[in-house]
Design a binder for these strands. Structure first.
Lengths: 118, 118
DNA sequence: TACCTTGTTCGATATTCGACGAACAACGAA
DNA sequence: TTCGTTGTTCGTCGAATATCGAACAAGGTA
C-alpha cells in the first residue's frame, strides 16, 4: 500500500485501460467517481469481499484510471479524468454515458443507501 | 461456422464490448475495418496463426462488434458501427481516435504490404 | 501498551484467455 | 471424384483473472 504505483499520463496504455474498464464492478466504481469528487474507500459499497474490492481498485489504479491518496490508515480515490481525456479524448465520457444508460455496476455510496434497490 | 451468432443491437453488453476491444490485435482489426468497407478474411494480415485469428474474429463477432457474412467458402467481415454508435454513442469513435494515435494493432491489409514496416 | 480500524497481501481455487498445431468440414475447381 | 482453399473446432498449454477468507501491517485510540 505504501508506494502505490501510478503510471504517468504518457504511459497510459489503451488496451490496458480498456481491459480495466471491461469489468462491470470496475465500471460501477468509475461511475461513482464520475462526478470528480474524491471518495473514501469506506464510502464505496460493492457486493464483494473487501479483498476483492481492494483488487479491483488496484487494477484501476495500475491502469491509470484512478489515483489513490493515502491519509493515515485510510485511502481516498479519484478518477483521473483529465489525464484520460488528454490521452484518449472522449473515451471516458462515452463509457460513462453508456454505463448510465445500462446501469452497469452494482456499486453505490454509503451516503445513498437507496441506490442498492435501484 | 454455419450459424454465426450475432447479438441483436439491443442485446449488446457494454462490459462484453469493452472486453472485446481490450486486446491489441482486436483493436487492430477494428482499425482496419474502421473505414466501413467489408473485408475478406484473406485480406487480413496479422502476426498470429489462422486459428488464433479465427478466435479473435469470433470474440468480436460474439460481442457484436463485427458482422460476418459467408459466401461460399469464404467470409467477409464488417464493423457494426451503426449499431455500436446507437447503443454506445461515441465509444467506437473515441477508441479509434486513441488507437490511431497509439498505433495499436499490428494488423494490416494484404493490399498494403508496406504497412507491415510502419 | 493494548486494542481497533483500514486496507494490503497471501494462499487457494475455479475460471477464462491467448496461443498453437492438428484435424475437420464445406465448397469450388480440376 | 479428387484436390486445394478456407475457415472452424478441438485439445492442450501456460498465463492471467476473479473470488474468498485468513493473516498481516500501519496508524489511531483508549
Amino acid at each position: 500500500m505504501r508506494y502505490a504505483h501510478h503510471p504517468a499520463t504518457e504511459d497510459l496504455s489503451l488496451p490496458e485501460v480498456m481491459a480495466a474498464l471491461s469489468d462491470p464492478l470496475r465500471i460501477g466504481l468509475v461511475r461513482v467517481l464520475a462526478d470528480g469528487a474524491e471518495r473514501g474507500w469506506g464510502e464505496l459499497r460493492a457486493p464483494v469481499a473487501k479483498s476483492t474490492l481492494s483488487h479491483h481498485l488496484r487494477v484501476l489504479r495500475d491502469a491509470g484510471v484512478t489515483r489513490t491518496r493515502q491519509e493515515g490508515t485510510r485511502c481516498f480515490v479519484t478518477l483521473r479524468r483529465r489525464d484520460l481525456d488528454e490521452r484518449f479524448p472522449g473515451l471516458v465520457g462515452a463509457l460513462l454515458g453508456a454505463a448510465e444508460a445500462e446501469d452497469v455496476g452494482g456499486v453505490h455510496l454509503a451516503s445513498d443507501p437507496g441506490a442498492a434497490r435501484r
